[in-house]
Simulated assay, not measured.
Amino acid sequence: MAWLILVAASAVEIVMALALKYADGWTRFWPSVIGIAAALGSVFLLTLAMKQLPAGTAYAIWTGIGSVGITVLGIMLFGDSPSAARLLCIAMIVGGVAGLKLLEA
């Protein structure tokens, strides 16, 4: 169950990053509110997951999934560069997250 909570925390983290992008430097009210609420929700879920998972593993996976998710959405939604170097970095993050999950005991 802790792993599902961690994945949910990561998904909410992605929502936070998207909302903050749309908040345009805190100049748009509702995206700003959603960003703050999502940040609080994400940290709350992360805290629940950490009750059963090692802190370092949980935090690294939470940030890894969030980083990959928002990077992919940035490419799809905002025209961010899908350069080979960026895609290689994303692949390394995915590999690291998978390695942490496999080594978690």
Score class of each variant (00 low, 15 high):
65 I>H: 00
50 M>H: 12
45 L>C: 11
62 W>Q: 05
51 K>F: 14
65 I>K: 03
60 A>G: 06
35 G>T: 07
58 A>T: 04
38 A>R: 06
55 A>D: 13
66 G>I: 00
49 A>L: 07
61 I>R: 01
34 I>S: 14
57 T>R: 05
54 P>K: 09
37 A>H: 09
60 A>N: 04
38 A>N: 05
42 S>T: 08
41 G>A: 09
44 F>D: 10
56 G>V: 12
51 K>G: 14
64 G>M: 06
41 G>P: 02
62 W>N: 04
66 G>D: 01
49 A>V: 02
33 V>E: 08
46 L>K: 10
35 G>E: 05
64 G>P: 02
39 A>Q: 09
46 L>E: 09
63 T>I: 10
58 A>D: 05
62 W>P: 00
56 G>A: 15
59 Y>V: 02
54 P>L: 14
51 K>H: 14
43 V>I: 12
49 A>I: 04
56 G>P: 15
36 I>P: 00
65 I>D: 00
60 A>F: 05
46 L>V: 11
61 I>A: 00
64 G>E: 04
60 A>T: 06
62 W>Y: 08
38 A>I: 07
46 L>R: 10
48 L>N: 13
65 I>L: 03
37 A>Q: 09
57 T>H: 06
63 T>P: 03
61 I>W: 01
52 Q>N: 15
39 A>R: 05
47 T>S: 13
50 M>I: 12
45 L>I: 12
39 A>P: 03
50 M>R: 14
35 G>S: 06
41 G>M: 11
53 L>K: 07
54 P>Y: 01
63 T>K: 04
41 G>D: 08
46 L>Y: 06
50 M>P: 08
54 P>W: 07
49 A>T: 03
36 I>W: 02
40 L>G: 11
48 L>A: 13
39 A>E: 04
33 V>A: 10
43 V>C: 08
59 Y>N: 05
62 W>E: 00
56 G>L: 15
37 A>C: 13
52 Q>D: 15
33 V>C: 09
58 A>R: 00
65 I>M: 00
66 G>W: 01
64 G>A: 08
38 A>G: 08
40 L>V: 12
55 A>W: 15
45 L>F: 12
64 G>S: 06
51 K>V: 14
66 G>E: 03
60 A>P: 01
46 L>Q: 07
56 G>H: 14
63 T>W: 00
66 G>P: 03
48 L>H: 12
59 Y>E: 06
44 F>E: 10
47 T>K: 13
36 I>S: 00
50 M>C: 15
37 A>Y: 12
47 T>W: 13
53 L>N: 01
49 A>Y: 02
42 S>I: 00
41 G>K: 06
36 I>M: 08
55 A>E: 15
66 G>H: 01
44 F>M: 11
41 G>V: 10
37 A>P: 09
63 T>A: 07
53 L>W: 05
52 Q>L: 09
53 L>H: 02
57 T>C: 08
65 I>V: 09
35 G>L: 05
60 A>V: 02
44 F>T: 11
33 V>Y: 09
36 I>E: 04
48 L>G: 13
64 G>Y: 03
59 Y>F: 10
51 K>M: 15
59 Y>S: 03
46 L>T: 08
49 A>S: 07
46 L>H: 12
